[in-house]
């Protein structure tokens, strides 16, 4: 299953619009900055909320991220990544830094709830991996992973769990979990690169 030409052109159009807004933001254009926020804040807030699971903290990260985007829009390098990827990386990195700053061993994962979410129909990390509507090749590649690998990758990505947190959460030896993740990443890489999903090449 590959992206349709419509998907690709919509994606490129959106990327072009965001790139333009970033360029104007770099020149201190507040109106462009406001438009950038309007177009991306809900997406980025969802990313932060999903990882941090605490709205006050997610709001704080979103706020810090946009102040940073305002200050650093000039360093955005359009030749290097999709604008939404760049924006997402800013938010996600801040979220992960927040998580890591918390005491290392006080992860507040509710095992029961998490277990249920993976088992039932609520949108779980796994479902969301599979629902990445804008990345069908990604979806195909994720589906090709073993169930264990897929679950470990989903929990790491959407919850920001470290290897040892994953091991505890999945009740598996650390070495086992590490190798699930490592193999999953290797397989994703060869699957995605083989599918030509390296999106920077689309531009």
């Amino acid at each position: 299953m590959t992206a349709t030409p419509e998907d690709v052109s919509r994606q490129i159009e959106r990327g072009a619009r965001l790139m333009e807004l970033l360029a104007r933001t770099a020149l201190a254009d507040q109106r462009a900055f406001a438009e950038l926020y309007r177009l991306t804040a809900s997406h980025l807030y969802a990313v932060a909320l999903r990882i941090l699971r605490e709205s006050a903290l997610a709001e704080e990260v979103l706020q810090e991220s946009f102040v940073s985007i305002w200050n650093n829009a000039g360093t955005y390098l359009s030749a290097r990544s999709q604008p939404l990827t760049w924006l997402t990386s800013i938010v996600r990195n801040r979220c992960l830094d927040h998580l890591r700053r918390r005491a290392l061993d006080t992860v507040t994962i509710d095992d029961e709830e998490e277990g249920m979410a993976i088992a039932d129909d609520n949108p779980s990390p796994l479902d969301m991996l599979l629902a990445s509507a804008d990345a069908r090749a990604l979806r195909r590649c994720v589906e090709a992973l073993d169930a264990d690998q897929r679950q470990a990758v989903a929990l790491a990505f959407y919850r920001g769990l470290t290897h040892s947190q994953l091991a505890r959460h999945l009740k598996q030896p650390l070495g086992t979990v590490k190798s699930w993740v490592r193999r999953a990443l290797e397989r994703l890489k060869s699957c995605l690169d083989g599918a030509g999903i390296n999106r920077s090449s689309e531009r």
Binding site: A41, S42, Y45, T85, L129, S132, R199
Partner: peptide
């Protein structure tokens, strides 16, 4: 790797942040 993995985030349902954030 950001180009490869961050599209995962696109599967999330957008959630509007409170107006105070802006």
């Amino acid at each position: 790797w950001e180009e490869r993995l961050l599209p995962f985030a696109e599967g999330l349902t957008p959630i509007a942040p409170p107006a105070r954030v802006w």
